[in-house]
């Protein structure tokens, strides 16, 4: 692995995180290439969300370095470089959805037109006057996605972006993510392997805090001597 070289956007080097005696991440190192969508794949409890929170700086680590384009990233600098959208949050839960979206739009210095475009694409117009607490799970996920896509940081990390969506909605979200990936690098933590296979360029397989494999689907197939038409699910089962 080419650690810390400047042809990568993000480099994570030797990241270890423990909760008491439990090792949530064990010496995890990987690189993310400019403009790619990297999928974090792993079973529940494998450390995907912990890894994203450690990269963001929302959790302290025992060891590890984060680099951006070859330079070490301080906690303060990370705010300029990356935006992490956690999975199970309800920001400003009692306020109108339009107020919350407008807050993040202005926070990120985004034009009103861009917000309107997102509202249109995610079909949020009917719920704009409702508070987040009154929305269904599907709408909440769409609002969270809108908040994430309003951010301007070059690296966007989304935790379970397809959770709570049906197949048609998932496909629409994928299309939207492809649209917004221009000039941006993305890390998506996904447990639905079928969705991950459709949108991610490369995959990072985590299990019990350990990095088991990283690469494109073809690279992973070769690594495990699988057929060229083996699905990500088959690759995942072979590796774990």
């Amino acid at each position: 692995m080419n650690k810390g070289s400047s042809n990568h956007d993000l480099s994570v080097i030797g990241m270890t995180k423990t909760f008491g005696t439990y090792k949530a991440l064990s010496d995890v190192s990987f690189d993310v290439f400019p403009g790619e969508i990297l999928g974090l794949i792993g079973p529940n409890g494998s450390g995907k969300s912990t890894l994203l929170e450690c990269i963001t700086g929302l959790l302290p680590t025992e060891s590890g370095t984060i680099m951006w384009q070859g330079k070490a990233l301080s906690l303060r600098k990370r705010k300029q470089v990356l935006w992490y959208q956690p999975d199970d949050i309800l920001p400003f839960v009692d306020q109108r959805t339009s107020t919350t979206l407008s807050f993040f739009q202005r926070m990120h210095g985004v034009k009103k037109n861009d917000l309107d475009h997102l509202v249109d694409r995610l079909e949020l117009f009917p719920i704009l006057n409702k508070p987040l607490s009154a929305l269904s799970k599907g709408y909440r996920r769409r609002v969270l996605l809108a908040i994430a896509l309003l951010s301007k940081q070059p690296l966007l990390m989304l935790d379970e972006p397809f959770d709570g969506f049906d197949l048609r909605q998932s496909l629409a979200v994928m299309e939207l993510l492809r649209e917004y990936r221009k000039d941006r690098t993305m890390i998506l933590s996904i447990h639905q392997l079928s969705e991950a296979e459709k949108i991610c360029d490369r995959f990072l397989l985590l299990d019990q805090g350990k990095l088991l494999a990283i690469g494109t689907l073809d690279e992973l197939r070769i690594q495990k001597d699988l057929n060229a038409d083996a699905s990500l699910e088959e690759v995942f089962l072979a590796i774990t």
Binding site: T56, K79, Q80, W83, Y84, Q85, P86, I89, L90, P91
Partner: peptide, 16 residues
Amino acid sequence: GLDKQNGTLKLLLQLP
């Protein structure tokens, strides 16, 4: 407390 509970704090702490 509420920001911590509903996750808003995780977003606010990412603001510059």
